[in-house]
Design a protein around this nucleic acid. Sequence first.
DNA 1: CAGTTACGTAAGCTTGCGGTTACATATGCG
DNA 2: CGCATATGTAACCGCAAGCTTACGTAACTG
Lengths: 106, 106
Amino acid sequence: MTTDVFAVLADPHRRKVLELVAARERTAGELAAEFDVSRPAVSRHLRVLKEAGLVTCRQDAQRRIYRLDPGPLTEVTGWIERMSGYWAGRLSALEAHLDANPEAPR
Amino acid sequence: MTTDVFAVLADPHRRKVLELVAARERTAGELAAEFDVSRPAVSRHLRVLKEAGLVTCRQDAQRRIYRLDPGPLTEVTGWIERMSGYWAGRLSALEAHLDANPEAPR
DNA sequence: CAGTTACGTAAGCTTGCGGTTACATATGCG
DNA sequence: CGCATATGTAACCGCAAGCTTACGTAACTG
């Protein structure tokens, strides 16, 4: 089971599914109609998204209605923020260095 | 050439490279030493990262020194923010509906 | 210049992922 | 109950992605 959110987001079809369910919940059929690939393929993507916790699914008669759960996305934003944090720290170190060695003043 | 930032971030090795260069720039050899895979494998990851614009590379004698460029990450954060925006809109629509039909008041 | 260091590239192999077709399951309907 | 609708599962296939080994290429070093 692929539980890595980054890997799940790597597929454009899955990202489009998320965009679609972000606005309003949709049935599997409605979602499948938006893609050029076969319905089983979409069904697999939905399973992957569900396993990753990015969508939830409730049943209404024969239909399965999918809804976005943006929770796991915090793993991504958190990682990027940490990166940017380190990056900012590195930059300020560079600035300190440039301040101490002003050979190319702005 | 894979220019899709999401796909580039899908690989854990590449994410670790980014984490490593986020703190301070590193040579290809330093980076390779941090992984259990062969050096050519790391070299390929570096190429992918470079093509995606996530790292830059300058040469110092025989060494290649890699540095983070967080710029392309905005594509990811932007996408997630848009998602969250739609999500929030959907939520407020739900809230409006609940306000208009208060059959389960809080 | 010959040897070493530090990398990247090429070629080939393997595996995993996404796709399709065919089938199973479950619910509503007459 | 029998049929249609809606959807997931199974089995199989092809290809792209990542890994490895072997080799090519600069640049420093004595």
